[in-house]
Amino acid sequence: MLPRAEHRAGDRAPRWQIYVPLGLYLLFTLVPFYWMLLFAVRPAGSSSLLPWPITFDHFDKVWTGLGFSVFFENSLLVGGASLVTTTVIALAGGYALARFRFRGKQVFLLAMLCTQFIPGAMMLIPLFEIFRSLQLINSLWSLVIAETVFQLPLSLILISGFIRNIPTELEEAAWVDGCGRLQAFRIVVLPLLRPALVAVGSFAFVHSWNNFLFALMFLNSQDKYTVPVGLSYTLGEYSTDFGALAAGGVIAAVPVVIVFAFIQRWLVQGFSAGAVKG
């Protein structure tokens, strides 16, 4: 019988079996980003495969000429508002699902899961009629409401699963010390929910930032457009300004990359913890 150390060494896969697939995956993933960055900083008409000489004319064109500064601000407002509303409502609903017993709870969870199979395109006409009756057409609040509604089912399930993993004895100890339920939740449970809140909030922000269909349907004036709709204006009927399109794509990708660079640790922890129990 082999020693334990030798047995483990024999089971270890060769390095090339790890690095070759990872290298191919990175190549497949990063080449489109490099191509986009190349077109964004390469002078118009150039066919060089290297970004030299570097020009920022395309960024200046989309930021000031095409109004991307306004689109960017609108996307930030919609993303931030969707993040806050989705997180707050999912936090309250997730706590109720995890800690309380009530009639129809399983049916409610099943209904929440079933909504994830409904494409957003099927809801465009009903949502348009609702927002028109509420006079919310061409308002950024229509996007915030629609995004919150579509993000809530998954967010509720994630947060409720995370709260179930927090022992109820922690809250009971706070109750014994004189805290009410709300105070115990704020002092004991809420600090432990940071990974779940980061996961839910980041998912809501990124989805609302990238959503094109709702913004195209519910907004009809240029000063209310978001970044995805603004990108479509770089596509002409007979020609396409690839430099402006690539520069707009870089601008649209920067906030998402920054968000995930800072929250990736909490994001993975939140998704994995929320999926342990149902």
Rank of each mutant, 00 (worst) to 15 (best):
R181S: 11
P195L: 11
E169G: 04
I130K: 12
A246L: 14
Y238D: 14
S160L: 00
G178L: 09
F56L: 05
S239W: 15
I157C: 04
F68A: 12
S142Q: 09
F71L: 15
V70I: 11
N74I: 02
L216T: 15
F212W: 06
T29H: 12
P119E: 14
E147F: 04
L124M: 05
L76I: 01
A92V: 05
L192V: 04
L109W: 05
F33L: 08
V268C: 04
F262R: 01
T226R: 05
A184N: 08
H207C: 15
L49Q: 03
A5N: 11
L190F: 04
G10A: 05
T86D: 14
L136C: 04
E129H: 10
T226M: 06
G230R: 00
R101P: 00
L91F: 04
I145T: 07
A252G: 03
V200E: 07
P153F: 01
Y34I: 11
L197R: 08
A173S: 12
Q17M: 13
F28G: 07
A246G: 03
A44W: 07
G180Q: 06
L2H: 02
V176W: 02
L235A: 07
E171Q: 03
F71T: 14
V78Y: 03
K277N: 13
S82C: 05
I166F: 03
A40F: 01
A44P: 09
G23H: 15
F262M: 14
R265A: 03
I157V: 09
H58M: 07
F100G: 05
I130A: 09
R164H: 11
F28N: 05
A98S: 11
F131R: 13
F39E: 08
Y34A: 05
V78K: 00
Q222Y: 04
L76S: 01
D57Y: 09
A273Q: 06
F242V: 02
I145M: 04
A273K: 11
L24V: 07
T29P: 15
L192Q: 15
I263M: 11
R103H: 12
S133K: 06
V70Q: 09
G180V: 15
